[in-house]
């Protein structure tokens, strides 16, 4: 049996860890709720942009939209895809970072299978430090790593990412932009999503705008309260300045920016909730371990007492 002293030290450290994980759990829960409510604030913006787009498309032949470089895409002999992985700067969040890496692997495998001639090549852009080793292992070159997005990303923080991507896309550096991120479904369920952002599809954009309202829990009741496509019913004669094409470009640019911010914010909420669950498990474990240790401590203490009693009584017997 272990010595009392030894058990006591272990018990103390287990209790300490338990306190820390418990605190982290509570902090993560608060951060998760805050991230959720921040994610909601971009809702008005996306709906307004979608409404403008719906109105605009009424006065523009659909062909104009389909031919826009953001929608039509460009053809290149050796196309390059930029894969943006959105994870975290910090660990201790269960499988959060790992599952993004796994989803990226799955994407590469599937994409390569669809391209038997192997003409497609890939570049990576990372959000968060934690995927650096994955990127190194994958062998793809990393264009840029964005770190310190904070607990809740702000539009200003995400702007360099969006600018870098849209600029590269416009100049033909990449023909396709794919994002691997985490979708926040509920506190207990998040799953990774792999999404093509550019060339964009309108259905995808509408889907993102709808997803801004979470499916379950707080705020979920807002989900059906607003139809993003409710445009102007009466046909009005619009004036477009400088030209309908320029207005379209501007709207599409805003929609892409909105999608990026939203993906990062959702990853934030997922990260906090993944950490909350991981810390909750750690607290439960430390409590169990603490209970076992307390039992063996009591055992050892009792054994010591019994031993002393035996010594005293045997000494008494010997003296008589």
């Amino acid at each position: 049996m272990e010595s009392i002293h030894h058990i006591r030290t272990r018990l103390a450290s287990v209790k300490n860890i338990g306190t820390i994980t418990k605190a982290m759990e509570v902090v993560s829960a608060t951060k998760m709720r805050r991230a959720q409510s921040i994610a909601l604030s971009s809702r008005e913006y996306s709906f307004a942009a979608l409404r403008a787009l719906t109105d605009l498309l009424r006065y523009m032949p659909e062909k104009a939209l389909l031919q826009h470089p953001f929608v039509a895409g460009k053809k290149a002999r050796t196309p390059i895809t930029l894969v943006v992985l959105i994870a975290s700067d910090r660990g201790l969040a269960g499988a959060f970072n790992g599952s993004v890496a796994r989803a990226a692997d799955a994407f590469f495998k599937k994409d390569r299978a669809a391209d038997p001639e192997g003409r497609e090549s890939y570049r990576l852009a990372l959000v968060g430090k934690k995927l650096a080793s994955y990127a190194q292992k994958s062998g793809f070159s990393v264009v840029e790593t964005f770190t310190n997005f904070g607990d809740y990303a702000t539009a200003d923080e995400v702007l360099p990412l969006t600018d870098m991507i849209m600029d590269g896309y416009r100049r033909g550096k990449w023909e396709r932009i794919v994002v691997v991120s985490t979708h926040f479904k509920t506190t207990l369920a998040q799953f990774t999503v792999t999404r093509q952002i550019l060339p964009m599809s309108l259905d995808q954009v509408r889907e993102t705008a709808r997803e801004i309202v979470p499916e379950h829990g707080r705020f979920a009741e807002l989900r059906d309260s607003f139809a993003p496509d409710a445009g102007d019913e009466a046909l009005t004669e619009y004036l477009f300045e400088p030209s309908p094409e320029r207005v379209l470009s501007s709207i599409l640019k805003h929609l892409v920016a909105m999608q990026f911010l939203h993906l990062v914010l959702e990853a934030n909420a997922s990260e906090h909730s993944a950490r909350m669950v991981a810390m909750k498990n750690a607290s439960t474990n430390s409590k169990e371990l603490g209970d076992t240790l307390t039992l063996s401590f009591n055992n050892a203490r009792q054994a010591l007492i019994t031993k002393e009693m035996i010594e005293i009584s045997s000494a008494q017997v010997a003296a008589n």
Binding site: D232, F240, E241, R246
Partner: peptide, 19 residues
């Protein structure tokens, strides 16, 4: 200020989209 010049919008301005 828009790309095609400064505008002042008053009540019931005609429908407009501008960069």
């Amino acid at each position: 200020a828009t790309k095609s010049g400064e505008v002042t919008l008053l009540d019931h301005h005609r429908p407009l989209m501008s960069v």
